[in-house]
Design a protein around this nucleic acid. Structure first.
Lengths: 147, 147
DNA sequence: CTAGGTGCAAAAGGTTTGCGGTTAA
DNA sequence: TTAACCGCAAACCTTTTGCACCTAG
């Protein structure tokens, strides 16, 4: 287990405990897989990856673990149109760039969306979470089309 | 047919024609139903509403019509976590407030998200569409909890 | 006339649930 | 010890597809 793995495991354990959830190898695995490949995978993609090292894990467990990780504030999900939910372990404030060509999702540094959060929410509305997704064409796909 | 209906029908016909799509009663119905109740319904809710006046319409047709309306720029869809897609006929720039308590979606005037659109997208990325959703508790639900 | 659309039913995802067995605390 | 969690399979919900019929242009 390398340094990143150790750190991820420590993070999971700490957050799960803080939320009164059990720390299980599966939850640690799911989190580590998500941190290792921050490409916003679907639950099934995550499942397939984890199965390579832990063949006995089930897809339902991946969903359950993801929900536990969301509950303890380590993971957020990204909804794109009618597609499968995608997951993100970057909890820094950022928004997502969704490429309509290759379907990739790229984290984008925030720069002022924090500002957007405070922008004119009428009194009574309480903001807890901001999802901002820009849809368009990513750099790779832009380049490919032009070529 | 009242003034709003007439106007909505004219809008649909115009946009469909401009995109080379046929104007059909079903597409007009779906658009009118969406404009009449701007509560961001799911495809099925829309289907149930339309069925009251047009009992023969099918759910598949509602999906098809929605896709046609999206294609011609009259409708956008709003994805929320793992729930069913919801639809919005307000094409003015705005963001969505999703209430995690009652699951309602409220249109919010933009104020500066246009700014967010230009915020630091690295060169090569082309923005075509911005989805911004604030999740939290709406006014009604905030009031109910406090009471 | 005929390409594009509709309605129906069946299939295909994606996600959740029920349950018997396992395990973290 | 035991409530929480896992793995499996079945169920569920949402969305798409195939096909025969219909209709707008």
């Amino acid at each position: 287990m390398n340094v990143d793995d150790r750190k991820a495991t420590a993070t999971v354990n700490q957050h799960l405990a803080a939320s009164g959830l059990r720390r299980t190898p599966q939850r640690q695995q799911v989190y580590k897989a998500l941190v290792a490949h921050p490409d916003h995978p679907t639950a099934e993609q995550l499942f397939l990856r984890i199965k390579q090292t832990t063949p006995k894990i089930s897809l339902a467990t991946v969903y359950n673990c993801l929900d536990a990780l969301i509950a303890c504030g380590l993971v957020r999900q990204v909804a794109v149109d009618r597609g499968a939910a995608r997951f993100c372990a970057n909890m820094d404030e950022h928004f997502h760039f969704h490429c309509e060509s290759c379907n990739s999702i790229t984290d984008m540094p925030l720069k002022g969306a924090a500002l957007a959060r405070k922008l004119g929410l009428p009194r009574g509305f309480q903001a807890r979470r901001l999802d901002m997704t820009v849809h368009g064409t990513c750099r790779t796909c832009s380049a490919r089309v032009r070529a």
